[in-house]
Write a protein that binds this DNA or RNA. Structure first.
Lengths: 241, 241
DNA sequence: AATCCCAAACCTATAATACAGGTTGACACA
DNA sequence: TGTGTCAACCTGTATTATAGGTTTGGGATT
């Protein structure tokens, strides 16, 4: 375990050329009002315009790719990328691993988000969404003794609700916030040994799905609230803080 | 305006060595349970262990730095970095610029988040926080005819509430979600030409601060809800969709 | 024994050159 | 008009070099 905590005040760091180029590329994208899928000038072109080496350009492009600003493929010019949940999910997973936050804290944020998404889903859901949510609860019921499979349906359930909000930001956030279930559910499931307990989890989800089908925001919020109360109880009993 | 939309199906992309190394470094951090501030092996060491060139290591380290996983400084080994709001704020700003989402959508997410943070702030606030919030509303009042300065106090107000939740994730999210105000407020403020209108904005914030001071979640939620209703109206009147 | 200083070793930042393989667009041919 | 070929362009990886910042260990001094 490394313990290299610095005992000296940190000197202000000069802006590196890579950092400067990252900002230049972002400015280029925004000034020209580029959209998702539009090409960005190549490493070579940018390098010439900005008067920097290929090394600096490559490093800046890799950083921009890591930030999901551009996507880069061999032989093709980089293009503006659509944002997705991967980056934030990784940040949250890293935050949990490095003990910057706890599962309960993550769940509290999830809860406040999903109390809103479930209301919006009641208002905006299509018939297909209503059917899909009920189908997902049936799949959860059918797989309740295979925690990995059930977790995937559970995650899909919450993502489907977020998509039904018709606000593109909610699916990204909810998806990011739910990935941790892949790590927590197997452990929580060990404390739910009896079939009735496992099936109760499914019931909470079915109640939510029915409220959304019936377009009843009050019932949906109640059902989601109960679901989160019980999920939090499960986490606590399993030793998650 | 570039219009390079690909007309061919995209072939599956092989994993590059840089991507592979990014995953290796993340695994290293998590397997050794490194914490914020702990050093990571140098580019040279990792390059030797993984059998890759310095170029690949540098590019991977830059990507990890861009993701706020590590911080990198000349002459020192990289270290595990604390997460902060900068990355997500940049993603959201980029999303707005590239028309992947709208200001109203961003505000809706903000609203659901802040309806929760204000309740938690009532429960967890210290005397210092209560005083700071009231002070910030006074500063907003004193600067109501300088929109840039007032915006900074406004942002600080919301960030202070998020910090009072004692959940480290809320300040990150709220801070990320509020940075856009630097762009929207100057435009919205043009539609609030009369002093009384401007001061009403300050009143909403003061009402929130007073409810938090009085530890009254119901009043706090009402005041926050009114604030967001009115802020949304201002956005709509200013042409933001 | 504790502290300070300095040089060597180590560290990242940038540049240049080379080779490799993938993609695109223009041109020729059927 | 559709297909194949090839040159130009594109990113991926490696190596070597120079520059400046940081850390560490050994020796000198108090």
């Amino acid at each position: 375990m490394n313990k290299a905590v610095s005992r000296r005040p940190e000197s202000p760091q000069p802006q590196t050329m890579v950092q400067s180029v990252i900002a230049d590329v972002l400015r280029h994208i925004h000034e020209r009002q580029l959209k998702v899928g539009d090409t960005v000038p190549s490493e070579g072109e940018f390098g010439q315009q900005l008067g920097v080496s290929r090394t600096v350009m490559r490093e800046a492009f890799k950083a921009l790719a890591a930030m999901n600003i551009i996507e880069v493929h061999a032989g093709r010019k980089a293009r503006v990328k659509a944002f997705d949940s991967t980056l934030m999910a990784l940040t949250l997973s890293h935050g949990l691993h490095t003990e910057q936050l706890t599962v309960q804290q993550l769940w509290d944020v999830r809860r406040s988000m999903e109390m809103r998404t479930v209301v919006l889903a009641c208002m905006h859901r299509s018939e297909a969404v209503a059917a899909a949510l009920l189908e997902l609860t049936e799949r959860m019921r059918a797989t309740h003794n295979d925690v990995a499979a059930m977790t995937e349906h559970d995650i899909a359930f919450h993502e489907e609700i977020a998509k039904a909000t018709r606000n593109p930001l909610f699916p990204v956030l909810v998806s990011s916030l739910t990935q941790a279930m892949r790590e927590t559910n197997p452990i929580v499931w060990r404390s739910r040994t009896r079939s009735e307990e496992q099936l109760k989890v499914v019931d909470w989800h079915r109640d939510i799905a029915e409220a959304i089908r019936d377009q009843d925001p009050g019932r949906a919020m109640e059902a989601m609230s109960l679901h989160f109360d019980e999920a939090l109880r499960g986490l606590v009993l399993s030793g998650f803080n």
